[in-house]
Nucleic acid binder design. Structure first.
Length: 818
RNA sequence: GCCCGGGUGGUGGAACGGUAGACACGGGGGCCUCAAAAGCCCCUGCUCCUCGCGAGCGUGCGGGUUCGAGUCCCGCCCCGGGUACCA
């Protein structure tokens, strides 16, 4: 007999070769009828080599893709690279190596490893976002958004990272620090490019209802958009004849306002005190507040500081004069940069009032008498027509009254800001705009796209894009008037590149257009999107915005890019995030080298539910490897004696004893794995079921029927294929002479799923006292009789009165006794 | 503070309101072998005893609903993540 040693180094390259030679995973855009499925994992940023997180996300995605294919769908499962970005550029600054070269080298690493992992990718659709044939269309989309007024330039207070020497979008500032490098960000007043994502705030919010995403991701997006309903109320400063609107969610508390506060950045603060004796003090305060870091200023528990402006505004509901303050707890970015302060019913206003000896007034009854009171209740001490009215009802009534007087109106405010997309860096997609002194901002004509990123020698950022130094490139004739003009030298945020790549995959080789809308209609939306929860706000919000905007412009027909989202948990080592500095990095390449790709993939899916974080265990890998080796060896040995007959994979007939039990186990495994893969991604229990089946086969005695052994092993291999494709393909091929990926998903024979004898649990007062065998179709009375006859049940019923009997057919009998 | 997750053996984890701990790791014992590796077999939640087809306890804590609760409800504690002066 041949030497049957499981050797992934032999098996894996052989099948990879077949898949590459035959372009097995390619799917055309041909108008073939039948169900389609678009399975997509978030595209990788190619830096160095793939890490363990990549192994996980593509193992999960590949399992889904294979399952969809085997259950009769045409599956689009492409791959690409998010290839622009700062790490490559910073590397270039240190070494002088062109970012394109280091990026392409990384991409080759990724390609090689994806092939070695056996991921079923349609390589014919591959691209990197840094390739002109791709970013040509990124620029085209930018122009379409520009034409529609959705991309615009404005001067604003923006977040600046002094380390990366570029501006950042709000989403890229985490705890006052740069999301990428961790450096504390500053605020600068600069003119920048923005996308008008705030126009879509309501739709981005409302359409969350229509997509099947994890609740926590939806919640994070809702919070980020931060819609609040309330009213805009106008407070007039009579001294200077200026109206100051404020946004409030609590117009019901208007009668409790006792002072008025402006943000230090508010443009009118200095004007209000000009030439007064308060000017010096206010100047000092504002300067101090502006120089304070975001971190310090952002702390909610910080004492409430502020300065009186020496001016007053009039409360529109009762004509009271309220003192005006400047205080850093009011933010310029939100609302109008000014607030009415109601210390009786707001924590922060209360804290400020305490610190500055301002009156606190109760206008809503309730609570235990303590102020501030944040709950609901009837109005008091407000106005005769509102007193006694529930505050929720009063809220509307007061807004109506204000609207009638022209002093306010219902209003909605969002936390979401427009997306700042320009970056003062080199390695990104050039913004296709020419700045002409005469014509202003002129779009580059579509026929001239792409605006190709020029090669430069000095990548160092100096507060402006390194592109600004490429004089030959910058100097250009204005497309509109022909006079000398200059190119926009900022590049786009790399999140722009990844906001539409899933559209390009559908029609990746189209040189005439970004895509053919008819082709897009065949594939979009993505049926199953898979990635890390760290993109819950950034990428996933931006991509949704792009799809909605492009739909409005008539280029596609869907409202949402990703119908179903799955977020996988992190892989840790020794309970901690893997990092070079901790020295706890597990390299996928080392694992694949040692155990093979199948072991690495199957282990990462077996370790636990894929949505949970999981800790890597070297011993656990060994266990999965042993399992694959055992399955393969059993299959190879069983195939020595012959193959299964051609045709459908069905159990031999006329089985009995252990042979029948194995056939039943196979049917059970088919059913179990199918269920685990259908509704949820319970890969861990699916693999456990195949393990159980394999264990049962390995316990068969030598005189077992060879066909049932082959059948059960072929079922095991077939079910395992989505998780460990090479070893499964190899085992299946030996057992059947056929290619498992061309086989339909196995069907469980219903007659084998049924049992004629079942085990019945006998309980007395809810405690298990005995287990008995009973015919599966036994009646309740029969089951009851069987259980009451059981010795241990009788022992526990001895001398007691039976008060109730519960029978769950096929399962259990519970006798309740006193 | 608020919003999500999550607390089950030595470990990762299983369990439509119905046998808690599938599967795997680790551990113990055995077979094979000159020996080892590999492989195979058995045992493995805790406690007690009369050692059995035994009894009791056991899913973070305290209550509740139910014939029956890891699972549902109420009140807490702890851990992880997100978010935070957003008016």
């Amino acid at each position: 007999m041949a030497d049957h040693r499981y050797d992934p180094k032999q098996i894996e390259p052989r099948w990879q070769q077949v898949w590459a030679d035959e372009r097995t995973w390619h799917v055309g855009n041909d108008d073939v009828p039948g169900e389609r499925s678009y399975v997509l994992e978030m595209l990788p940023y190619p830096s160095g080599e793939p890490h363990i997180g990549h192994l996980k996300v593509y193992s999960v995605g590949d399992a889904v893709a294979h399952f969809h294919r085997r259950t009769g769908r045409r599956v689009l499962h492409p791959m690409g690279y998010d290839a622009f970005g700062l790490p490559a550029e910073n590397h270039a600054i240190r070494t002088g190596q062109h970012p394109r070269d280091s990026t392409n080298a990384s991409i080759e690493q990724f390609q090689r490893q994806f092939r070695e992992w056996g991921i079923s990718i349609d390589w014919d659709r591959e691209f990197g976002t840094h390739e002109p044939r791709y970013y040509r269309w990124t620029q085209w989309i930018f122009l379409k958004l520009f034409e529609a007024g959705l991309a615009y330039r404005k001067e604003a207070a923006v977040k600046w990272c002094p380390n990366d020497q570029t501006v950042l979008a709000n989403e890229q500032v985490v705890d006052g620090r740069c999301e990428r490098c961790g450096h504390e960000v500053e605020v600068r007043q600069l003119e920048q490019w923005f996308f008008r994502i705030t126009d879509y705030a309501d739709r981005l919010l409302d359409d969350l209802e229509t997509i099947d995403w994890p609740a926590n991701v939806k919640t994070m997006q809702r919070n980020w958009i931060g819609r609040s309903e309330g009213a805009e109320v106008v407070f007039r400063c009579e001294d200077l004849q200026i109206d100051y609107p404020v946004f409030t969610t609590r117009p019901d508390t208007l009668f409790g306002a006792t002072f008025f506060v402006m943000a230090p950045e508010h443009p009118d603060v200095l004007r209000l005190v000009e030439g007064t004796d308060r000017a010096d003090e206010v100047h000092r305060y504002v300067n101090h507040a502006l120089n304070e870091s975001n971190q310090e200023r952002g702390a909610a528990d910080k004492p409430k500081t502020g300065v009186f402006l020496g001016r007053h505004v009039t409360n529109p509901v009762n004509g009271e004069r309220l003192p005006m303050y400047v205080a850093d707890y009011v933010l310029m970015e939100y609302g109008t940069g000014a607030i009415m302060a109601v210390p009786g019913h707001d924590d922060r206003d209360f804290a400020f009032a305490q610190a500055h000896d301002l009156p606190v007034r109760r206008v809503i009854e309730g609570g235990d008498g303590e102020l501030p009171y944040l709950g609901d209740g009837p109005l008091t001490d407000s106005a005769p027509e509102f007193d006694g009215m529930g505050n929720r009802e009063a809220l509307g009534a007061i807004v109506d009254w204000l609207a009638g007087e022209g002093k306010g109106r219902p209003s909605v405010n969002y936390r979401l800001r427009d997306w700042l997309l320009s970056r003062q860096r080199y390695w990104g997609c050039p913004i296709p705009i020419v700045k002409c002194e005469r014509c202003g901002l002129v779009p580059v004509p579509e026929a001239d796209l792409p605006v190709v990123l020029p090669d430069i020698s000095d990548y160092a950022p100096r507060g402006r894009s390194p592109l600004a130094a490429a004089e030959d490139w910058v100097a250009v004739a204005c497309p509109s008037c022909g006079e000398p003009a200059r190119r926009e030298t900022d590049t786009m945020d790399t999140f722009v590149d990844s906001s539409w790549y899933f559209l390009r995959y559908c029609d990746a080789r189209n040189d005439e257009a970004a895509w053919d809308p008819a082709v897009l209609a065949e594939w979009m939306p993505v049926d199953q999107y898979i990635g890390g929860v760290e993109h819950a706000i950034l990428h996933l919000l931006y991509a949704r915005f792009f799809v909605k905007a492009l739909k409005d412009l008539g280029y596609l027909g869907v409202d949402e890019p990703f119908a179903r989202l799955f977020t996988q948990g992190m892989i840790t080592k020794d309970g901690a995030k893997m990092s070079k500095s901790k020295g706890n990095v597990v390299s996928p390449q080392a694992i694949v080298e040692r155990y093979g790709a199948d072991t690495a993939r199957a282990y990462i899916l077996f370790i636990g539910p894929p949505e949970h974080a999981a800790d890597w265990s070297d011993e656990g890998v060994e266990g999965v490897h042993r399992f694959l080796a055992r399955l393969w060896r059993l299959a190879a040995e069983a195939a020595d004696g012959g193959q299964l007959p051609a045709g459908e994979l069905t159990a031999p007939s006329g089985l009995e004893g252990a042979d029948l039990a194995v056939a039943r186990k196979a049917a059970w495994a088919i059913d179990k794995v199918t269920r685990d893969m259908s509704g949820r991604f319970a890969f861990n229990t699916a693999i456990a079921a195949v393990m159980e089946l394999t264990n049962e086969v390995s316990r068969l005695r030598d005189d077992a029927a060879p066909e049932v052994r082959r059948f059960a092993l072929a079922v095991a291999a077939s079910l395992l294929f989505p998780f460990a494709p090479h070893v499964s393909a190899d085992a299946y091929s030996r057992l059947t002479g056929r290619r498992v990926w061309e086989e339909p998903w196995p069907q469980a024979d219903p007659t084998l799923l049924e049992r004629d004898v079942v085990q019945i649990v006998c309980q007395v007062n809810g405690k298990v006292r005995e287990r008995v065998e009973a015919p599966a179709d036994a009646s309740s009375d029969e089951l009851l009789a069987l259980c009451r006859a059981a010795p241990n049940v009788q022992a526990h019923l001895d001398g007691r009165e039976v008060v109730k009997e519960v029978v769950v057919p096929g399962k259990l009998v519970n006798v309740v006794a006193r």
